[in-house]
Design a protein around this nucleic acid. Structure first.
Length: 191
DNA sequence: CACGCGATTTGG
DNA sequence: CAAATCGCGTGT
């Protein structure tokens, strides 16, 4: 029987957490149904010194949530049409977050397919914008705690290193060369 | 207050 | 390879 991950779980370094979140379940209650799946891809964004992190420009209305306490969602809109789901990590005042980039669909697949406009299951949650669409996640979740009633995470056994790979983060061409190369993207292969 | 662009996805 | 589409950060 898996239990709900509490806010304290996220009060750690974002890189460690991005690795440890692989294999955990992200679940969403939507219109009386539970949707969600297993987290298979994440990225860590680590504070004001990380030029890829939104907080590298300081505390602004958008990044304010990241400066708060761990275990809260940071959700923002990008390209005018896609939402990105992050979880604030680390100590209060140290802006960090883990971006959830992909899920293996497990629960409420039929409903998620409908929310995604009928795409194939393989394309259902294999991207940060896609999974938000599949789980009906928008900015209304920004700032809410991770142990909420409508969107939460559940624990699962740690995944083995043999099934995990790390590499550079995607879509951050505006960051410094050094930060672009940091291996802070984590992928869980197979089961 | 105007301007430029992005932690993406999709279709051509 | 380029469009879609808008909130936010930056500079005037």
């Amino acid at each position: 029987m898996s239990h709900v991950l509490t806010r304290e779980f996220f009060a750690r370094d974002a890189v460690t957490l991005a690795r440890d979140m692989l294999g955990k379940k992200l679940l969403r209650r939507h219109q009386g149904q539970v949707l969600g799946g297993i987290i298979v891809e994440t990225e860590a964004y680590l504070g004001e010194d990380d030029t890829a992190c939104h907080a590298s420009r300081g505390c602004t209305p958008r990044t304010q949530v990241m400066y708060g306490s761990a275990g809260h969602y940071y959700v923002y809109l990008i390209y005018g049409m896609y939402h990105m789901l992050n979880i604030v990590t680390g100590e209060e005042g140290h802006p960090q977050a883990v971006l959830v980039r992909a899920l293996r669909p497990v629960l409420g697949v039929e409903q998620m397919v409908a929310l995604r406009g009928g795409v194939a299951e393989k394309q259902l949650c294999n991207g940060p914008g896609k999974l938000c669409q599949a789980l009906a996640i928008d900015r209304s979740f920004n700032g809410l705690p991770v142990d909420g009633a409508d969107l939460w995470l559940e624990d699962a056994p740690p995944v083995d290193d043999a099934h995990v790979s790390a590499g550079p983060r995607v879509g951050i061409g505006y960051a410094s060369n050094k930060d672009q190369q940091r291996p802070w993207r984590f992928i869980l292969h197979q089961r």
